[in-house]
Amino acid sequence: MAQLQIPDFRKSTIVDQVGIEERVSRFNTRSIKKESKVKGLKLVLSMIDLTTLEGKDTEGKVKQMCYKAAHPHDALSGLPTVAAVCVYPTMVGTAKQALAGTGVKVASVSTAFPSGQSTRQVKLLDTKFAVEHGADEIDMVISRGEFLKGNYAFVFDEIAAIKEACGTARLKVIFETGELSTLDNVRRASELAMHAGADFIKTSTGKISPAATMPVTLVMLEAIRDFYYATGKMVGMKPAGGISTAKSGLQYLVMLHETLGADWLTNKWFRFGASSLANDVLMQLVKEKTGVYQSKEYFSAD
């Protein structure tokens, strides 16, 4: 009988935190000006998963956000749409309808987001519900309790099962790195999720602080690179939560560019999970075009 090639995740690659932080601070010395800035900002905009994940979300709010996703700022020509909107499963149908024909994808969180504290059965139903209502992408959370316990097989099976339930929808696996406590754990979770079939790995739910940080994202990007060289498979990356300025968007982009190269510089392989980032990017793009900053009131807050 053929043996499955699943590595022992207790032996995942070691990460040195000091080295990671140094590398990040070096990325942040890059000075992005003029045409490279405009190109970078447009890329950032095109990589955004415009997100609303609140208990008080309404269909009206989701519809308005969907319009914003497809028309980020019509006063400025030549802008891309954002990559996707990210909503709860119950809002998928509404979003799908609102975005019909725009090319903007609909992502749904799932698996008892954000805590993941539920049974496999419920998580599968949650996922199937979202997929049946037209979700193009599923953002699942892992069972952090089982992961921290060292029960890697449980988490592996969980991801594999959800992946199967996704069908053709692309699966993003959220680690909630703010709860994993070490970069070694982030690396281990990354390897585990990629081997279990993740299409994307994602830092956070946005509900726990710290959410995405550059060091955590770098560890995950390096894991993606090593996985690519080992298997030939590309995996996407999505930092989420806490990225709200165009400047930090560009810093993440520099890090992506210099870690994984040109092939990942597209919204097929990189996303920002963010809500307020889009408007800051738009403000900077208008400034690059006109030479002056406009106030926040000139940009729609959806």
Binding site: I32, K39, L43, L260, G261, L265
Partner: peptide, 11 residues
């Protein structure tokens, strides 16, 4: 990996 094209930094 391809590091030679994609996004060049302006001077």
């Amino acid at each position: 990996l391809n590091f030679t094209s994609g996004w060049e930094y302006a001077p």
